[in-house]
Amino acid sequence: MLVYEKVSFGSECNNRCMTCPSARQQETPRLNELVAQIDALKNGENLELFGGEPTLHEDLVSLISYARKRGARRIKLVTNGRRLADADFLFHLVEEGCRIFEVKIYGSRPETHDAVTCVRGSLDETLRGLQNLGGISDSGGHEGDIYVGIRFGVTNTNLEDLVPAVAFLMSFSIDAISFVRMGGDFPIVQAARMVANAMKVATLNRIWSMCEGFPPCVMKGSETHLSELLQPVAFENDKPKSCLRCVFAKICTGPHGDYAGKGLRDFKAVSASPYSKDMEYLLKMRSIHAKQ
């Protein structure tokens, strides 16, 4: 819902995820280059620090305090959470002004998580990081609280682990979970069903959940959780013709590039939806986000 401006820390990382979007090697920016990125932002109000893995950068803490001094009001760290296993380091980040964390996870067991990160022991460290975040949340010491979101990468190797993983994650202090489809090398309908079930478990436990990369036609019954309807995401206009007959045509981002050329049988135009009467407001919401 909140729009963040991005600050890139390059591609350096202590995981080697098979699904890594920053596969292309990027130089690790020096502090002055990071500062230049912040100086060049349009608003500088909401910042998302991403990599690679920003926590490996030796100037992360100084950058957070620079951003804060420059007027940033929300600083979000997208991280694999491993370095947060060091409680003193985490404490430092929070103290300097980083209050919003998005921790990337691929499973509840090393067989699923470490298999994607390609680093043995990475899940263990990430979970210790989550535990430390929970400690800060519960103490409420830092001007009240922190926000912890989970970014759960959905791959062809962890579909069966989605429901158990959500159930497992409920014992940590988390505020929301996003299921993000990584790649298109699995049947979308089956994956959508698994994601929908996992989101139900989260809802049942009073945790907000969303999914990304699953259009409404494959997520019937879970439309309220579709990130693309709620968040500002790039709009793909090269949707297949069949989409034009769909009630979601104006707001759906389409079946996504990963599935192009693989047959689009699974993406069937939706002829009626209980949400069609909300279309006017979904469009208005999109234009609000676009303006920001």
Partner: peptide, 14 residues
């Protein structure tokens, strides 16, 4: 659930 999560994130402004 949705509004509680997003308002919490919003209200954490420094």
């Amino acid at each position: 659930l949705f509004s509680s999560a997003v308002t919490k994130e919003y209200n954490l402004a420094l």
